[in-house]
Design a protein around this nucleic acid. Structure first.
Length: 385
DNA sequence: TCTGGGGTCCTAGGACCC
DNA sequence: TCTGGGGTCCTAGGACCC
């Protein structure tokens, strides 16, 4: 029955952002470090294991992190650099695995099914080699798991961090999962966890022992997925055709803002950056999104779908402005604004514009983009600012 | 300790068309 | 006479992930 099971590896870089910062500044090695937003309103996006000993976790407000660990060294990250290293590692792994899926900036899946002979029937040995190579060639610690599907491998790396290595043999999936806490299942967040605990499902074994129908009754359609996961089944097909479906930019202000004109100015800056990034992809978006968060954290979103896809700052801003003025009803200070573009189509030259005036505008925008590339995003803004 | 910024996917209701 | 059903698109919100 197990003869057609696959060999899917999951590679997860350990506290990736911190590890990169340690390459740049070796004095950070061995110390409690957090990469994240500085200032009162920042949060932790990556914490070193020395910091985790104090209870510091990612997504934690920086103030809280500093209370738990006063000697915490906070570093503002550089996302562009992380992305480049991530891409290099992906290409490196493509030399070893026939199929590689980049799952996020710091993790990837590799399908080694059918490669057993190529690697002398020693895939575990290959995993050790790859882990050592990542350390040697990239100076990055990582955790690797190998099993019959993506979800078990992902759960397994999560359990073995940092610098762990684990092989879950075919047929032993259920046994491996049984003692683990339900919260390790990807997709179980705070809400789902609470719901499951309410009915005394605390370990994966509890789910294994239950009826599929019981789990479905508690969690609806999601329940089917959780039950399958618990008994060791899961997706074993790598997704290599990923394409981003939205481009957005949002900003939490240092201090809340109530002034309409200042809010509009911020919306214009966000619009500029979203349109710039969309143009860099050579895309146009049809649906414009606005996000608005009040000082009490209540958040609303508004969309508008245009007749034609666009990446023109002016057209997008007109849409953003009109939905913002309609949506901003509470006389309440605002802490965050966001602008996004979705429903992309390729921006082809012949459909780009019909009118000469638009052509001219596109030329100007192209010139602005070139300057930005040369001097950085803040170098130039168009008229409205 | 008051909570970032980038995303994805799902649901549910309404509009509209045939 | 107020009444069907299928399909698609749009919108708002929520849960979740890194």
């Amino acid at each position: 029955m197990d003869y057609h099971k696959k060999f899917i590896a999951h590679l997860d870089l350990d506290c990736f952002f911190v590890s990169v910062e340690r390459i740049k500044d070796p004095s950070l090695i061995g110390k409690p470090v957090a990469v994240g937003g500085v200032g009162r309103r920042g949060v932790v996006s990556s914490a070193s294991y020395e910091a985790r000993k104090f209870g510091v976790r990612s997504a934690m407000p920086m103030g809280q992190a500093l209370d738990l660990c006063p000697q915490l060294i906070v570093v503002r990250g550089s996302h562009g650099e992380y992305g480049k290293i991530s891409k290099r590692l992906y290409k490196f792994m493509c030399d070893y695995a026939p199929i590689v899926q980049q799952a996020s900036i710091d993790e990837m899946y590799m399908d080694f099914t059918g490669c057993e002979k190529l690697y002398n029937n020693d895939l575990p040995g290959l995993m050790r080699t790859l882990q050592a190579l990542v350390k040697k060639e990239f100076s990055l610690p990582c955790t690797i798991a190998l099993s019959s599907n993506k979800i078990i491998s992902k759960i397994a790396t999560g359990c073995m961090k940092p610098e762990g290595l684990i092989i879950v043999e075919h047929g032993l999936e259920k046994d491996f999962l049984a003692p683990l806490d339900i919260a390790v299942i990807p997709g179980v967040g705070t809400k789902t966890e609470k719901e499951l605990r309410k009915y005394n499902f605390n370990t994966i074994r509890d789910i294994q022992k239950a009826k599929k129908e019981t789990i479905e009754a508690i969690l609806g359609d999601h329940g089917r997925y959780f039950y399958r996961t618990a008994i060791g089944l899961g997706n074993d097909v790598l997704d290599v055709g990923w394409k981003r479906k939205s481009i957005s930019n949002e900003n939490t202000f240092m201090e809340n803002i109530s002034d309409r004109n200042e809010l509009l100015k911020n919306l214009f800056e966000l619009t500029e950056s979203v349109c710039y990034n969309t143009r860099r992809y050579g895309w146009k978006g049809k649906t414009v999104k606005l996000k608005l968060r009040y000082s009490d954290f209540s958040t609303i979103t508004r969309n508008i779908t245009l007749k034609e896809p666009t990446n023109d700052d002016r057209i997008v801003f007109d849409a953003v402005k009109s939905i913002f003025l309609k949506a901003y009803t509470r006389k309440f200070p605002i802490r965050l604004l966001g602008v996004g573009l979705t429903q992309f189509s390729e921006s082809k030259d012949e459909t780009m514009s019909i009118f000469a005036e638009d052509e001219k505008r596109m030329q100007i925008l192209n010139a602005v983009d070139k300057l930005r590339k040369k001097f950085g995003d803040d170098a130039i803004h168009t008229g409205k600012l």
